[in-house]
Design a protein around this nucleic acid. Sequence first.
DNA 1: CTCCTCAACTCGTACATACGTGTACTACAG
DNA 2: CTGTAGTACACGTATGTACGAGTTGAGGAG
Lengths: 262, 262
Amino acid sequence: MAESLTLPDLDPISDRAVFRQIADHIREAIERGQLAEGDKVPSEATLMQHYGVARMTIRNALQVLQSEGLTVAEHGRGVFVRSHPPVRRLASDRFARRHREQGKAAFIAETEGAGGKPSVDSIQITEVKPSAQVAELLNLGPKARVVSRSRRYLINGQPVETAISYIPAEIAKGTQIMQPDSGPGGIYARIEEKGYRLDRFVEEIKSRMPLRDEVRALKLAPGVPVFHLVRTAYATDGTPVEVCDTVMSSDAYVLSYELPAR
Amino acid sequence: MAESLTLPDLDPISDRAVFRQIADHIREAIERGQLAEGDKVPSEATLMQHYGVARMTIRNALQVLQSEGLTVAEHGRGVFVRSHPPVRRLASDRFARRHREQGKAAFIAETEGAGGKPSVDSIQITEVKPSAQVAELLNLGPKARVVSRSRRYLINGQPVETAISYIPAEIAKGTQIMQPDSGPGGIYARIEEKGYRLDRFVEEIKSRMPLRDEVRALKLAPGVPVFHLVRTAYATDGTPVEVCDTVMSSDAYVLSYELPAR
DNA sequence: CTCCTCAACTCGTACATACGTGTACTACAG
DNA sequence: CTGTAGTACACGTATGTACGAGTTGAGGAG
């Protein structure tokens, strides 16, 4: 399988470092499709033989590819070309009421629409003291408490996003928000039933390398950054009613926003 | 001079790899502020002595920090704690007409307002055949041509963003858009003078690791991802009038958007 | 046929050594 | 005082060796 792979020899004249040349060869093989997603990259021993260099040199080359997010190393198995999950496009109207009223959670509906198998796990609901940041965004006093709903989203079994919502306890108490299944239309529907008519959301987006926990939770390959998105939901009277803190695998998402020119 | 730095010894019991322990120590020193921005991390030789380990082990540790974006190595000088440029917050109303009418380019005004010294360089203007992607976004026929304006934005001399705008040649020809200084209010003002009233913008955002050229252009430290943002400007009749392809250093930006709930 | 053991192969970690190349400071010559 | 050569030091690249640990599959025991 895939043994049509033939890597060029080193260019003895080039002043490009040997390990970079090797990385270039493998990268080009991937880009040309000679190595497809999921294919095994030749083992370190094989590459040592082919190029006639030391193992450290090969490892440096593989390190480059890994930090570019092109490959993953699996201990005891080999190095493989990364496979990319289907990309989710988040449009700026994704929280429009017309979508919310269909009853299905946005994530489920969207993913099924795109032909993927959505799932949600690790749902945890607790009542806690809000962090300083959350308290400020929700405009809460020092004694207020919030209900936190954390969960993880997966597409075709591959985790793509973790999210934690914070809702003022005063709003969430006694509603289905406290249940793992928050009911038709999700927590936003429950919040509106409480008399808060949703008006607008504000999203703040950062991009950075993931923390250790995030690498684990999202099964991220080395070299893949994450979107860190904090969304605050406001009711028509200006009251913030929810803060949602989400971390998304950057190669599973394209974010899309519409801005007025007015 | 920062010589209060004392690193702990290795934990011989821990099953955490030695190089990771060392990386942890240095990371904590940075987080505690014992190593401030711009400070020199002890040299590889010093660390070898302190921990009594081989150089490869030290280099592995430093590699970890570098790929986390915490440090930069400078050949012949040493390893330094990365300094972060001031963060720019891009709000979703940044292209509102009221800002545009003040005459100053958005980037200059914003940066000065935040106390930074803005500059723009590498301005290049050419007329080219659009790429397939740009042609599609601009809704152009196979023979149409576009004017491309590329430039690089810097804050306090540090590059933070590169941008290439594509404007249909038909619109740009004969206007100040063809000049390095596009005049008061920037190219959007020129486009409106041509009779296209701007209505809305659509931005698509990806996050990924930078390409080699981008690392150079933005002087990115290893391990720092970039935002890749493509903005399309539409006139009130729905005609797309500009596509702007920008790459931003992710640690210099926070993006902020407002979404309607309606 | 099934289960288990074990060998072979894989990547991970660590050691020791050598030489190249860029930087910065010092000392000396002019 | 100035300029330059030298030198010490820093990281970059590369070789070679050794052992650890996870995975896989073949082959033998039951």
